[in-house]
C-alpha cells in the first residue's frame, strides 16, 4: 500500500509585502493536519526558485508591478492546475496600485519615482538619479491585478486574509470542490 499522493503547492510573493505569506501561519495548529495532505514545490518558504514538477495549487501574493512579476505569474499559470490570488494586492493591485491614480497627475509613475528618489526632503540619494541599472526589472506603467495578466481560478480576500479563510479554501480545494465562502469571514482588510 502506498500512501495517497500529497497535493503539491507552490507559492510566490509578487508586488506584495509578504503579509499574506505570514497569514498562512495564522492557520495555526491546523497546519499540522494540513501538511499531511500537502507538500511544497517552489515557494519562498523552502527557497526553491524554480518548479520541480507540475503543481496542483499555485498561491499568488501581490499584483504585477514589473516585468519579472509578469513572467513569474505566467510561469505559475503554466505549471499549476489551480491558481489562487491571495489577498487584496493580488486581487485588485492593492496598496501598490495607489501609484496608478496619484492625485492630479497625468504621469503618475514618473511622479511616484521622483517623489521616492529625487524630490522628497527625506531622500538620501547623492546622485539624484532614478535607479536605472539594467539588472533591475522594468517597472510596468501601472500595477495590475493578477486577473488582468492570467486566468485566476479562485481568490481569497483580505489584507491579510485570515487564517480561517485560507484554511477553509484549501480544505475545500483539497476535497475536490470549492463551494464558496461563508460571508461572515469575508473581509477586504
Amino acid at each position: 500500500m502506498t500512501a495517497p499522493r500529497k497535493a503539491r503547492v507552490a507559492t510566490v510573493s509578487l508586488a506584495g509585502c509578504f503579509g499574506c505569506h505570514m497569514a498562512l501561519l495564522d492557520i495555526d495548529l491546523r497546519l499540522v493536519e494540513l501538511l499531511k495532505h500537502v507538500e511544497f514545490d517552489r515557494s519562498p518558504l523552502n527557497d526553491l526558485k524554480h518548479f520541480t514538477q507540475r503543481c496542483d495549487i499555485g498561491i499568488i501574493e501581490g499584483g504585477c508591478c514589473n516585468e519579472e512579476n509578469v513572467h513569474v505569474l505566467q510561469d505559475f499559470r503554466r505549471n499549476c492546475d489551480v491558481l489562487i490570488a491571495l489577498g487584496q494586492c493580488a486581487i485588485t493591485g492593492g496598496l501598490p496600485a495607489m501609484r496608478n491614480a496619484i492625485m492630479h497627475s497625468d504621469d503618475p509613475l514618473r511622479e511616484c519615482l521622483e517623489e521616492a528618489y529625487v524630490l522628497s526632503p527625506y531622500v538620501e540619494n547623492a546622485t539624484h538619479v532614478i535607479p536605472n541599472d539594467p539588472a533591475l526589472p522594468l517597472l510596468l506603467d501601472k500595477v495590475y491585478p493578477c486577473s488582468a495578466v492570467v486566468k485566476i481560478d479562485h481568490q481569497i480576500p483580505g489584507c491579510a486574509p485570515s487564517g480561517d479563510i485560507i484554511y477553509e479554501t484549501l480544505v475545500q480545494l483539497l476535497a475536490g470542490k470549492f463551494e464558496g465562502f461563508d460571508p461572515h469571514i469575508v473581509h477586504f482588510d
Binding site: 492593492g94 485566476i152 481568490q155 489584507c159 460571508p183 469575508v186
Partner: peptide, 30 residues
C-alpha cells in the same frame, strides 16, 4: 482601496460586497 481606507469595516459598499459575495475573479478593468 479597502486596506488603507478609514471607513473599512464601517463601509456599506464594502459590506454589500461581502453580503453579495463579490469574491470571484473579475472580468472588468479598474
Amino acid at each position: 482601496i479597502c486596506p488603507v481606507c478609514e471607513a473599512s469595516g464601517n463601509c456599506e459598499l464594502q459590506a454589500m460586497a461581502y453580503r453579495l459575495g463579490m469574491v470571484e475573479p473579475t472580468k472588468l478593468p479598474y
